[in-house]
Simulated assay, not measured.
Amino acid sequence: MTSLYRNTSYLMSITERPPVMFVRGAGSYLYDEAGLAYLDWMQGWAVNCLGHAPDIVVAALARQASTLITASPAFHNLPAIELATLLTRHSALDQVFLCNTGAEANEGAIKLARKWGQLHKNGAFEVISFDKAFHGRTIAMMSASGKPGWDTYFPPQVPGFPKAQLNDLDSVKALIGPQTVAIMLEPIQGEGGVNPASLAFMRGLRALCDEHKLLLILDEIQTGCGRTGTLFAYEQYGIEPDIMTLGKGLGGGVPIAALLAKQHCSVFQPGDQGGTFAGNPLTAAVGTAVLNALLAPGFLENVELRGQQLHDGLSQISHDLALGEVRGAGLLLALELGAHIGPQVVDAARRNGLLLNAPRPHSLRFMPALNSTEREIRDGLRLLRQTLEHVLCGQATAQV
């Protein structure tokens, strides 16, 4: 690679990036230019559900790329129909709109809810969302999100998204009015710090929606596609959403997302929704391959086992080092650090060969590949312990 292509100033500055340059990925590992391996417990923020460059994704891309990459959303294609069929057969939803990103799927969910409100609820349009929620980076989805400070980024915000508090049913009830059409939330707030909705709260929301004729929208972009140990997180609550969005893991590293709805609220008509690359056969073929892998016998059981192994290991580390709570489900977990040292831990872990994410300065988020092995989880816990001991020792020395 010549020096001409090492000048990062040509890229817009949208995030702080470390100096390391990754050139290859395989399974649970990323490799830099020097050939050093890093155990990746970010996996593209839960995107690479089968790890880096999985054979089934490579094969699906090659096979479909040699046949039909895209035709137009104006025509049917077989991979899109196959993926939509799989998604509906294995969920409680009835129809699917395939798109490209989670934010796009969530935008579609809001549009669908508002269209339903026009038809069945006197034009109601407000969607109750939650403090610390994250639904994407479009203007509307930033308004729907409850990430601190986002209301000042690109004002004015899009109206119609009053904020309640997660696991506080009374805060939701207080916001329901004649303009309310839906309630939207993540079963586990990923970017907010891996904050799970409680069983009682989720069931309470379903009851509220039924009582007030509202739609329940579940953003399963991060929790869906096996991440929490079941194909979809809603299955663990014993309830069904009216609308659900998927993304991230659905493509195993390839950009694809989906908006799913029950028949009674699937009210789009021609012209209401679309997108140049919506439902293109290339990514739909990959989505089908990934979903079939997740549905293979024993796959989700391994997610549960590795999730329990990771949870137990994190709990032991927390106990030994006097840290905080371990929370989440499956292979979407967080560890409270008890101090704002998250960025320091992430930096030290990378230097130690482990890639982590700190969604909040006081917590770490863990999103390993869903097909991680027992040994890989054990190795990651060892590297994490070493890193935390090093950082905490430095903190203690600095205070002396």
Rank of each mutant, 00 (worst) to 15 (best):
R6D: 15
T8G: 08
I14T: 10
E16A: 12
V20M: 12
M21L: 15
G25L: 11
G25S: 13
Y31G: 14
G35Q: 10
L36T: 15
L39K: 08
L39V: 10
W41P: 05
N48L: 14
H52F: 12
D55A: 14
I56C: 13
V57T: 09
A62L: 06
A62G: 15
S66Q: 14
L78F: 11
P79R: 03
I81Q: 11
E82P: 11
L86Q: 04
L87H: 03
R89C: 02
L98T: 00
A105F: 05
I110R: 06
L112H: 11
K121S: 02
N122H: 05
V127L: 00
I128E: 03
F130V: 10
D131N: 05
D131R: 00
K132P: 00
F134H: 10
I139M: 08
S143D: 00
S143P: 04
W150V: 03
T152I: 02
Q157Y: 07
P159Y: 07
K163A: 11
Q165H: 12
L169W: 06
A174L: 11
L175F: 09
I176D: 06
Q179C: 13
I183M: 01
M184I: 04
Q189M: 12
G190S: 07
E191F: 14
P196F: 09
L199E: 00
G204F: 04
R206H: 13
C209R: 04
D210Q: 13
E211K: 11
E211Q: 12
L216F: 12
I217P: 02
L218C: 03
I221C: 15
C225Q: 08
G226T: 08
R227P: 08
G229D: 04
L231P: 03
A233C: 12
E235L: 15
Q236Y: 04
D242Q: 05
I243N: 05
I243L: 14
T245F: 07
L246I: 09
Q263E: 02
Q263L: 06
C265E: 02
P270I: 15
D272N: 14
Q273A: 13
Q273P: 01
G274E: 15
F277S: 13
F277C: 09
G279M: 00
G279K: 07
L282A: 13
A284Y: 10
A285E: 13
G287T: 04
A289P: 09
L291R: 00
L295C: 04
A296N: 00
L300I: 13
N302E: 03
N302H: 11
G307W: 04
D312M: 00
L314T: 10
Q316P: 07
Q316K: 13
I317W: 06
H319Y: 06
D320I: 03
G328W: 03
A329N: 06
G330N: 01
L332E: 14
L337V: 12
H340S: 13
P343K: 09
D347I: 06
A348M: 10
R350P: 11
R350H: 13
P359F: 07
P361L: 05
S363E: 00
S372V: 10
S372D: 03
R382Q: 12
L383C: 06
Q386N: 14
L392I: 08
A398Q: 10
Q399K: 03
